[in-house]
Design a protein around this nucleic acid. Structure first.
Length: 973
RNA sequence: GCGGCCGUAGCCCAAUUGGCAGGAGGCACAGGUUUUAGGUACCUGACAGUGUGAGUUCGAGUCUCACCGGCCGCACCA
């Protein structure tokens, strides 16, 4: 110990790391200059390319970090540090998505204000992250709970409220425009009202409704996902497929409630189409496409006679039942129709009285002698409404339904087809009604089989296709002709087009596009979120507050909890915590026509609101006049001259952050909402970029092993030892008892958490960083293995020893020039490191560093030139030790902005190269040849090789493949 | 059920994109040097032929097909 006082130990690493962290902070090393706005520093910006590196907004968890959390943060830091060394002006910071449920739930339990809890958590997290040595611009580290931040969240809400989507703008692509322009267009008559009644004839309420119906933020009395167990409503996206809350796993019920909505569906097409211009992982793009669920097809009107009892003078004798289909080509095979149980026209078509002629027994499962159509349908609808989504799902193939007693006419051939009600048709998609084509649709086939309905094939299945299965593939149309049109022989695509043209021509239908995406439910009955900048006047009309009254600050309340209910109590009604702050809710304000009483909106915004735009505020956090100075936004996020690889020809670059790193769990919700808000801000002219995140990278997760004893209880993973079983198998034991191993997340309950603090203490931050980055490719999940961390430490120790004498602390490098082999290796290392760092391949970058470092270790003396290059190249992954060595090498400035070495192309090519000679693809000989050797020369050389001749013995050379200068393959027989 | 991703030494992972698996790197393992010893550090070494089977090719870890195993997303979306 005393002999090596200058060994690079965890203690020495800590001293070095803390000192450099202090110095970076004191010097503001990572402050990135802005071109304009409050921090305008045009000189600092001049002459450099910019780069905006972004991490997904973290929530400051109370549990503290485990070693998996910082993976992405380290990666972006390595990348940002590398890019600074290539001369770029890099913006990298980290703020906090600090509103959220955990702090609120803690507040409910303890009475401690969620702000206090959150701020304490942020202090802990900042300390842990600072200790990692992340090069963040701390001036920009905003939090969503800052009043100065959520003032602008509210401001954006006001902009969205005060705009509408003009679908005719931009050549039919559409764009958001200020609502005032809609009002002007309606007043001038340039635009007709939705009802067709002239604007001036409408009374004030009708005019208001006409406008509100177009706002991008609107209130709606609509079925929402009410979760009594959480005491709040949820967005569709927050409800799982089996009808429970994603958080807490409570039952969710459909309730009709008045809630704020965002008209994200207006952006469906752009949200799908613009994915093509983004450099995002394909799986994420696919998930977004699936979520938006655009499918094109046709709307077709079938007609059914109105039932006598419900026909009034106003309703026509026949009712149009509109269906949506993606397979209009199969219209001739439509043998029945199905309406969703909730379909509003069910009542209108069910005949009064008895079952019509032609009703089959199987069509009325309850027995048609027992019930009238009205009774049977009513019974079915009741039972369907009582079924939970889980039950509906678990039925799977076992379709249920009932005949309505009505027949509709297939427009293509006038055939009369029965109309059913069945819950395999969903009211929420398409028109809530389908034409059933059992021949070409699996679900319809199942239904037809069970309900004794005819099946007509209209696409010829290939030979061998089972008779008792629908055929959904492509093939020639059959059985598809009437007097005016024949599809027979056409493929699916042509048949679709021809049918649509015919339907349109006859007025029976039209080409249509539908989406799965629904408008976004934006109200939450919670305390710890952004209040809406909305008050209601005495008539109950929503009014946005003027900018001068923002932010609307959260009031203090006695109870942070929304009223929660029995999780099964579907009939309970939301009661948000803010409603109890009566002196805050009821205010007198002058909103232009004198002091009047108003009532505040008592819902809060969902957690997504702040994370929908935070990246914009990073750019210009001190700006009090605007959410971001336009010039600053254009500088950091503006459109590039070049589009991303793979973008459609002729496309315009959308701009956005240059690199966004985070987990794939945000593939849909956060990324979709942010894109939506960003596009609204773009349409309204507040930002120049069309997309928030130009390049997205999904990091993998660090997983861990967990161990359970015979009772299934988790045991502390750190205390488990590996033992060899009797048959040599590896087994695990805890305190002598056998335990089983499983692989998964790191978590408190699994007793397998390793914290960064333990790593700092045992190895230092640089070792921890190197280990995390060297474990494997960044996008792959992999297991944490503490015992493997020493590998990273040994590397840094060898690096240290290559420069510093462990006993004296003296510099050991010499001023000799490196030999040729070392120089060549250096330049090859530089070359691959540049591309590896740039491509986020830090694992291979570190392997090259280790390789080069090991090569230097073997030299009698390390030449200063190579040591300096190695130190600079190591700096992105291990910045503290690099700074320290850099200083020891005699430099006084931080190496943060030191130029990354450039490879000399001349040093990348050797004079000679090893040529591989294969016979029949098998390696037979190696030849050292000149790099510029000609094909003929090499061929001759290879054929002259003794080993080759031996391998060719008794064979005839058929062919010689020469890839000069590296490979010759001789084919013989 | 539909869609997507992935299988290389005991383990984590490389492989110029079809051209040498004396595997780039690391862990673990064995032996050695230093050490009173343990540990640290350093040196040396052993270990797989790329999940299975076929195909294309002069040549396949890389391309194609089928199967096996694992992971992820969606889930009656007409």
């Amino acid at each position: 110990m005393s002999e090596t006082p200058y060994r690079y130990t965890a203690e020495l690493a800590e001293r070095i790391e803390l000192a450099w962290q202090d110095r970076w902070a004191a010097e503001g090393t990572f402050h990135a200059p802005n071109p304009a706005g409050p921090w305008a520093d045009p000189e600092g910006v001049a002459g450099r390319e910019k780069l905006f590196v972004l991490d997904m907004f973290p929530y400051p968890s109370g549990a503290g970090l485990h070693v998996g959390h910082p993976l992405g943060f380290i990666a972006t830091d390595v990348y940002a540090r590398f890019q600074r060394m290539t001369g770029k002006n890099v913006l990298h910071t980290l703020g906090y998505d600090a509103f959220g449920l955990p702090a609120e739930q803690y507040a409910v339990q303890t009475g401690q204000h969620p702000r206090k809890t959150t701020e304490e958590n942020m202090v802990t997290m900042r300390r842990q992250l600072r200790r990692l040595g992340l090069g963040h611009d701390d001036r920009r580290a905003i939090a969503t709970i800052d009043e100065e931040f959520y003032r602008w969240t509210q401001w954006i809400f006001v902009q969205i409220f005060n705009s509408w989507y003009d679908e005719s703008a931009e050549c039919g692509r559409g764009k958001a425009r200020p609502i005032s322009e809609l009002v002007a267009a309606l007043e001038s008559g340039e635009r007709a009202t939705s009802s067709g009644v002239p604007w001036i004839w409408l009374n004030a309420d009708a005019q208001r409704k006409e406008i509100d119906d177009h706002r991008l933020a609107y209130t709606s009395e609509a079925p929402v996902n009410w979760c009594p167990g959480l005491g709040t409503v949820l967005a569709n996206e927050e409800v799982t497929a089996d009808g429970r809350s994603e958080r807490g796993n409570f039952p969710v019920f459909k309730r009709s409630l008045s809630q704020w909505m965002m008209r994200i569906t207006k952006y469906s097409d752009r949200l799908v189409d613009d994915l093509d211009r983004l450099d995002w992982p394909e799986p994420v793009k696919l998930m977004q496409r699936n979520w938006i669920g655009r499918s094109s097809g046709a709307k077709v009107s079938f007609h059914a006679p109105a039932a006598d009892g419900s026909t009034t003078s106003e309703s026509p004798a026949s009712i149009a039942l509109d269906v949506f289909t993606t397979r209009p080509d199969t219209l001739f095979g439509a043998t029945f129709m199905v309406l969703a149980p909730e379909h509003p026209l069910v009542d209108v078509i069910v005949p009064v009285g008895d079952w019509p002629e032609g009703t089959r027994d199987a069509w009325v499962p309850g027995g048609r002698l027992e019930m009238t159509p009205t009774e049977a349908v009513e019974a079915y609808r009741r039972s369907a409404s009582r079924k939970s989504d889980v039950e509906r799902q678990s039925e799977g193939k076992d379709k249920s339904g009932v005949f309505t007693g009505a027949f509709a006419t297939n427009p293509v051939d006038g055939r009369s087809i029965p109309v059913f009600v069945a819950d395999y048709v969903l009211m929420g998609y398409g028109t809530g009604a389908i034409m059933a084509v059992p021949g070409q649709d699996v679900r319809d086939f199942e239904f037809a089989t069970k309900f004794d309905l005819p099946i007509i094939r209209t696409v010829q299945p290939p030979a061998g296709h089972p008779d008792d299965e629908a055929f959904t593939g492509d093939g020639p149309a059959i059985n598809s002709a009437n007097d005016e049109i024949s599809l027979n022989g056409l493929g699916v695509t042509e048949a679709k087009a021809k049918t649509i043209a015919w339907l349109q021509d006859k007025g029976f239908g039209e080409e249509t596009v539908t989406y799965k995406l629904r408008d976004w439910l934006f109200s939450r009955q919670r305390y710890w979120g952004e209040p809406f900048p909305i008050v209601y006047d005495e008539a109950g009309h929503a009014i946005t507050l003027p900018e001068s009254m923002l932010p609307v600050v959260l009031p203090e309340v006695a109870n942070y909890s929304p009223a929660t209910f029995d999780p099964e109590d579907a009939m309970s009604t939301p009661a948000p915590p803010l409603a109890l702050a009566t002196e805050w809710v009821n205010v007198e304000l002058d909103l232009g026509d004198g002091m009047k009483p108003y009532r505040r909106e008592t819902n809060t915004m969902p957690n997504w609101a702040g994370s929908c735009w935070y990246e914009l505020r990073y750019l210009d956090p001190a700006n009090n006049d605007t959410l971001v100075d336009p010039e600053v936004e254009k500088y950091w996020m503006g459109k590039h001259a070049e589009t991303v690889v793979g973008a459609p020809v002729g496309a315009v670059d959308p701009g956005g952050a240059d690199l966004y790193v985070g987990g794939v769990e945000h593939a849909v919700l956060h990324l979709l909402y942010s894109r939506f808000w960003h596009k609204v801000l773009f349409d309204l002219g507040h930002v120049s970029s069309e997309e928030p995140f130009r390049k997205l990278f999904n990091q993998g997760y660090i997983q861990a092993f967990a161990f359970r004893d015979s009772r299934g209880q988790s045991v502390p993973a750190a205390e488990v030892i590996e033992v060899k079983g009797p048959d040599g198998e590896i087994a695990y034991a805890w305190h002598g008892d056998p335990v089983t191993r499983e692989y998964g997340k790191m978590g408190k309950s699994l007793k397998n958490v390793i914290t960064p603090d333990e790593m700092f203490k045992g190895y230092g931050a640089d070792t921890f960083r190197v280990y995390e980055m060297s474990m494997g490719p960044l996008d792959l999940s992999r297991p944490w293995e503490t015992r493997a961390v020493v590998g990273a430490q040994r590397f840094l120790q060898r690096l240290w020893r290559n420069v510093v004498d462990e006993e004296t602390g003296e510099l050991t490098v010499t001023d000799d020039a490196p030999d040729l082999a070392t120089t060549r290796l250096l330049h090859r290392t530089i070359d691959t490191l540049r591309t590896d760092y740039d491509g986020l391949r830090f694992n291979t970058a570190i392997a090259r560093l280790i390789e080069f470092n090991n090569a230097l270790t073997k030299l009698p003396h390390v030449p200063r030139e190579t040591a300096e290059a190695l130190v600079v190249m190591t700096a992105p992954v291990a910045p503290h030790i690099a700074e320290e060595l850099w200083a020891k090498l005699g430099h006084t400035e931080s190496l943060t902005f030191e130029n990354f070495p450039e490879a000399d192309p001349a040093m990348l090519v050797d004079d000679t190269v090893t040529c591989v000679v294969q016979v029949q693809g098998k390696l037979r000989d190696r030849l050292e040849v000149a790099v510029d050797i000609s094909e003929e020369e090499l061929r001759a050389l290879a054929l002259a090789s003794d080993k080759v001749i031996a391998a060719l013995a008794g064979k005839v050379v058929r062919k010689v493949i020469v890839r000069a200068p590296t490979l010759v393959n001789i084919v013989a027989s």
